[in-house]
């Protein structure tokens, strides 16, 4: 038995050395995380308003934030906004979901099989560098102006990011973890499930986040170029309509909506997911 003094020393060491968890209330967190972005937005609007008020450009080239807001309300009343947002988000989410499934399988294979990695790795990296808008003309020629053309552009944009994110996550798994897993008795599938995938999760989530950004951009590019009444509404199409009508206010509306969707998806899905994964691994400070 250890002498009682050792038990006390041990308890003292534990109490002194362990890092306590910071607990923060909801109001504090709201103030810390909600206020700065709102201030940033207010600053952008203020600069915009100031430039407009200076009268450097005529109104039809540079509308004021208020005019754009009025135009947005008008477009909403004409039923142009919600169907466009809804249809584009639906396409984005569907395309992204398929990309996640395909990119995950591809990433696992490329990350774990050396011959495949040597063959496909550079191609994936190249694809990630290729602006996905380049895929729109061949997709339209191949599929016609159809949803298939839009989705193929989204997939080609998002899959490389997701796959490469998982590959880099797998590369960063410390070999020690795999040794520990083996010593604990994790063979093949159990090792993948209990050690490899959780260890690679941070890189994978970063890849997912980038994959969503690429999916959304690719979709917008495709919707702007491949326009047809048969495709129905969409934010890209709204932007194209604004261009054709020479309506700068509507163009700004569409851009604002595209931005808002991107920001909202990030705030609701990827930022919390990333924070959760990083925090569980002790990789982010509690304030992040």
């Amino acid at each position: 038995m250890a002498a009682p003094d050792t038990v006390l020393v041990e308890a003292g060491l534990d109490a002194l050395e362990a890092r306590p968890r910071a607990q923060r209330g909801l109001p504090v967190r709201l103030r810390e995380h909600g206020l700065p972005p709102l201030l940033g937005l207010a600053l952008v609007l203020a600069v915009w308003q100031a430039v407009w008020a200076a009268g450097i450009e005529p109104d039809w080239v540079l509308p004021s934030p208020v005019e754009v807001g009025e135009s947005l309300v008008g477009a909403a009343n004409h039923g142009q906004v919600w169907p466009s947002v809804g249809q584009s988000v639906l396409r984005g989410v569907l395309g992204f979901a398929v990309s996640v499934a395909a990119g995950t399988v591809l990433g696992l294979l490329v990350g774990r099989l050396r011959p495949l990695r040597l063959a496909v790795g550079p191609v994936l990296a190249g694809l990630q560098n290729l602006p996905s808008v380049a895929w729109v003309p061949p997709a339209v020629m191949f599929f016609g102006v159809t949803p298939a053309a839009l989705y193929s552009v989204v997939l080609l944009g998002a899959i490389p990011s997701i796959a490469l994110g998982l590959v880099s996550g797998l590369d960063q798994v410390p070999p020690l973890f795999l040794l520990v897993g083996r010593n604990l008795g994790a063979r093949r599938l159990a090792s993948v499930r209990h050690v490899l995938l959780p260890a690679a999760l941070a890189g994978y989530v970063a890849g997912l986040k980038q994959g969503w950004a690429f999916a959304w951009r690719s979709l917008m590019a495709a919707e702007i170029i491949a326009v047809s009444p048969a495709l129905g509404p969409g934010l890209g199409r709204l932007l194209k309509q604004a261009q054709d009508a020479g309506d700068m206010r509507l163009a700004f509306c569409a851009i604002a909506l595209i931005l808002v969707v991107g920001i909202v998806v990030n705030m609701l899905v990827f930022t919390p997911l990333e924070r959760r994964v990083l925090r569980a691994r002790g990789l982010a400070t509690p304030t992040r």
């Binding site: 041990e10 060491l13 968890r21 002790g282």
Partner: peptide, 9 residues
């Protein structure tokens, strides 16, 4: 969480 523990713990 493991990262909250000291080296000895």
């Amino acid at each position: 969480p493991v990262h909250e523990l000291s080296g000895g713990m």
